[in-house]
Design a binder for these strands. Sequence first.
DNA 1: ATCCCGAGGG
DNA 2: CCCTCTGGAT
Length: 218
Amino acid sequence: MDRILAGTYPDAHCELDFGNPLELLVATILSAQCTDKRVNAVTPRLFAKYPTTEDYAAADRAELEEIIRSTGFFRAKANSIIGMAQSLCERFGGEVPGRLKDLVTLPGVGRKTANVVLGNAFGVPGITVDTHFQRLTRRFGWTAETDPVKIEQDVAGLIPKRDWTMMSHRLIWHGRRMCHARRPACGACPLAVLCPSYGIGPTDPAEAAKLVRPGPFS
DNA sequence: ATCCCGAGGG
DNA sequence: CCCTCTGGAT
């Protein structure tokens, strides 16, 4: 199944716009329960107004909230961003650390967010167990666990380490475009013949094709 | 387990 | 109206 995924999404990648680790960290916090497209709509203004950790740490809460409002959970996200920035200034000299152990100590940064930053801004192989990753690996029979850390351990034993970051992207792309939470497009899925969950969505190709969201397939 | 929260789709 | 969208903290 991993081979087919690799062939279907050869250039899967992080779809959040960013230019440095700090920008990716902020964008990833904003991406909680929100589409990347919407995050990318607000980050240009945000990054221009707050170019450094010091700028976030000293930000006016109301002004920051107004810019990120449309991403949802805006009060909690503003709290996380300001608290995270203050913590970065106090404990890491204003720099984003490149280790999981350090990243997860920041307010608003969990294991998933930390692995996104490591994998895409620092080039460290990371398994990103988000909602898509959890749903697809369970449907595929790669794991039976529900705890994200246990899922990560199961998948780590199945996939070579050098492929961890790309495999995370491919599963996420497939989850976003075809293997949806609600009505997965089983009839259009290239993994169907190998999938233990084939049939939980429409198996008629024409019906399934209607559910496939636009995106690169090669 | 529940809360945070807005926008877009069906 | 309903649901979902690359979570994290309590």
